[in-house]
Design a protein around this nucleic acid. Structure first.
Length: 726
DNA sequence: TTAGGGTTAG
């Protein structure tokens, strides 16, 4: 019988070796657990493994009722037994574990106790059922029937054939909604037609999983236990994956631990399902620990297990991890299938490795695999984010030449890629393709991508035409499309159109998010007073607290302390990605209204709350002000603040570096254009001695001598920083 | 296609 158990769970064997002295040592001497440490027990009293899928009849004794959780148990394991093995190849692992007295659980020539059964659970075969047609028809009738529970149960008795075990199973499999499946199952039990066994429970659970009814699944599992019906690997994997899909990860792990406790050894399906649970929890160490443990026991992971690992490393943006997965597959001679390639491509994208993603894709094609829509979607997205226009366009050509499959997500991803790279004509062509295609009509995402393209190119007429077209075709505008359009209308100063679009959007049910509010605030910060009021009226409907903050900001009676408190509350309630834009726009508004001190206070607060990380960089040879993530007004404010700081440093005769630089970026990014020019004119206004660098694009530079002489020449204390930020 | 695991969109 299987008798692996986790950790310091003591168990007794009702066999000749129940005396601990007769057992093979649990750990090789070099792997003995340090005193007081808990360990994962994976060894056994027997040199032969007898994996079993059935519930154990062995008595398991527990020293106490509070068994440590699996993750607690895994921690000491990963920290002590196998810490340096993760990420290394299998040979090394073998060498490490075989170097001293032979471990009973790593010797590949011997079968051994393991954490998983190396044999997948066998399914029972079934004979062809000649009544299948009638029963399927009967199932169809039941599926269409809307009757209440009592009537449904009466209908079950009208089966065209005798309700034998086989017929009932067939019918159970053919019912679509979990509600009816449960009703039918209850009926079978009430009628006592035959004993329901594990397979029946498994079929019902599968249906419940589809309906995400974890509570009901757990109820059934407990019913099995009380009725003495065996829970097998299929039962456990269904329970575990249902819990996972319902985001009940603790439940998933609870049932996994329970398997071991009741002596059921997981097979590779259950095991990889659990790897995925840990992966989804972001518990990389635990996943690797289980993985290595399985490997040390002779498990040859299949593509599905590697897909789980690949996805996990992708989520973590861990490139070394991705390489590890590739390496392991190579060592074990496991050929990746399309899904594994897709997962690894996604992962490469998340790890920001476009070149390696391209190489992997070529390898996949060279292996003779045909990329599917997910493969292509992943790659298109990667090229777009990397702004690799040539590769993106070549790929598109290839897709058409090879007649590779397309779907609406891929079309939309291609459109988004065009927006990222600024390929207007190509996007228009794609959009037309899409309109002509039978399966893929443009939807909200497609239109949002087009609005993004026209918006960033400031093509307000075309953007408005898209907006009208959507309305005519009955395509719902989404919040992203709305944001792109509003941004475009704001930048092209079509404020009346903007107000109309905004009002219509609200009527159509758009729920403004913080990005849209940031966009409105940005428009408000850049137009004349009359228009600003119109935009703030829109903002009032979307985010009244933000508008209130603007008036607090303008009120000279507001003390710094209460201003700070208001700012803290506002930013705390704002989505992370919109915080810096909010602060930038608020500073711009202050500068436009000649509220310089408030602008400096906002920059200070923004820095304190971490909205401008890396604004100031100091080394012994160079002090740099990096304003690339600032708006024009915020960059001006930061420059003034910095020059004030530098003046003080000179006056105090502090040690200064040789070089001072201000980095604005070269303006190649479509959002940062204009910052360099605006910054230069402000330098000019302050008569600050920075010059555009000839050899470092996007940098303004000044020497120590320049700065010192500038300070000495400036007789009046023209710039006194309100609060020094360094 | 009749019981279980992995992959796509600001």
């Amino acid at each position: 019988m299987a008798s692996a158990a986790f950790l310091d769970v003591h168990f007794t064997f009702p066999t000749s070796s129940s005396n601990p002295k007769n057992r093979t040592p649990l750990f090789p001497s070099h792997l003995k657990p340090p005193p007081g440490k808990r360990f994962f027990i994976i060894a056994s009293n027997s040199s032969k493994s007898t994996p079993s899928n059935s519930a154990s009849t062995e008595t398991l004794e527990y020293p106490n009722s509070s068994t440590p959780s699996l993750s607690d148990q895994l921690k000491p394991l990963s920290a002590t037994i196998l810490p340096e093995t993760a990420g290394k190849d299998d040979n090394l692992l073998q060498t490490q574990l075989l170097s001293k007295p032979k471990s009973i659980w790593v010797n590949p020539t011997k079968a051994k106790r393991s954490v998983l059964s190396l044999q997948r659970q066998k399914r029972s075969s079934y004979a062809y059922n000649p009544q299948i047609r009638d029963l399927k028809q009967f199932a169809m009738r039941l599926n269409e029937c809307q009757a209440e529970a009592g009537l449904m149960k009466a209908l079950f008795g009208e089966s065209p054939h005798e309700m034998s075990r086989e017929n009932a199973l067939l019918l159970l499999n053919s019912l679509k909604h979990w509600n009816k499946v449960v009703l039918f199952f209850d009926w079978i039990k009430e009628e006592k037609l035959f004993e329901v066994d594990t397979i029946f429970y498994n079929v019902v659970m599968k249906s419940l999983r589809f309906g995400r009814q974890f509570d009901l699944i757990e109820e059934l599992a407990n019913e099995m236990v009380s009725n003495g019906v065996e829970l097998d690997n299929i039962t456990y994997s269904t329970i575990i994956t249902c819990a996972k899909r319902c985001n009940l990860f603790d439940k998933a792990l609870h049932w996994f631990e329970r398997m071991y406790k009741t002596g059921v050894m997981p097979d590779e399906v259950t095991y990889s399902a659990v790897l995925d649970v840990y992966a989804k929890l972001g518990k990389v160490e635990e996943v690797l620990s289980l993985y290595e443990r399985g490997r040390a026991n002779g498990w040859k992971p299949d593509p599905i297990a590697f897909s789980v690992l690949g996805k996990m490393f992708g989520e973590a943006g861990d490139y070394d991890g991705i390489r590890y997965v590739l390496q392991e597959m190579k060592v074990l001679d496991v050929k990746p299938n399309v899904i594994v390639y897709n997962t690894l491509l996604e992962a490469m994208g998340k790890a920001r490795k476009p070149g390696l993603a391209r190489a992997l894709f070529e390898e996949m094609v060279a292996e003779g695999l045909t990329p599917d829509v997910k493969t292509l979607t992943a790659l298109v997205k990667i090229y777009g984010k990397a702004r690799w226009s040539r590769d993106a366009l070549e790929l598109w050509e290839r897709m058409r030449a090879n007649k590779w499959p397309m779907d609406f997500i891929l079309y939309n991803t291609l459109l988004s890629m065009c927006a990222d790279i600024g390929l207007e004509e190509e996007a228009e062509k794609l959009f037309d393709d899409m309109k002509r295609s039978r399966q893929c009509r443009p939807d909200s995402w497609s239109y949002a991508a087009m609005l993004n393209i026209y918006g960033s190119g400031l093509k307000a007429d075309k953007a408005m035409a898209m907006f009208e077209e959507m309305s005519k075709k009955g395509v719902q505008l989404n919040v992203m499309g709305c944001t792109c359009l509003i941004q475009c209308l704001g930048k092209t100063k079509r404020i009346d159109d903007l107000v109309r679009v905004f009002d219509l959007s609200l009527k159509k049910g758009i729920k403004p998010d913080d990005r849209l509010c940031g966009c409105l605030l940005s428009v408000a910060s850049s137009c004349d007073e009359n228009d600003t009021d119109k935009v703030l009226e829109c903002l009032q409907q979307a985010n009244p607290k933000l508008v209130t903050f603007v008036s607090i900001m303008e009120d000279s009676q507001t003390s710094f302390d209460s201003f700070k408190e208001e700012f803290r509350t506002l930013i705390g309630e704002t989505a992370v990605e919109a915080r810096r834009p909010f602060c930038n726009c608020l500073i711009d508004i202050c500068r436009k209204r000649n509220l310089q001190e408030r602008a400096h206070e906002l920059l200070y607060l923004g820095t304190v709350y971490g909205l401008y990380p890396g604004l100031h960089n100091r080394t012994s040879v160079e002090w740099c002000l990096d304003v690339r993530s600032l708006s024009v007004g915020a960059a001006h404010t930061a420059l003034e603040e910095w020059m004030g700081t530098l003046s003080k440093a000179v006056e105090r005769k502090e040690a200064l570096p040789e070089l001072f630089t201000a980095q604005t970026g070269a303006g190649t990014h479509r959002f940062s254009q204009g910052l360099s020019g605006a910054f230069a004119s402000h330098l000019n206004k302050l008569a600050a001695p920075f010059k555009l660098s000839e050899d470092r694009a996007g940098f303004f530079v000044a020497s120590r001598e320049d700065i010192v002489s500038w300070v000495q020449k400036s007789s009046t204390p023209h710039l006194s920083p309100s609060r020094v930020v360094t």
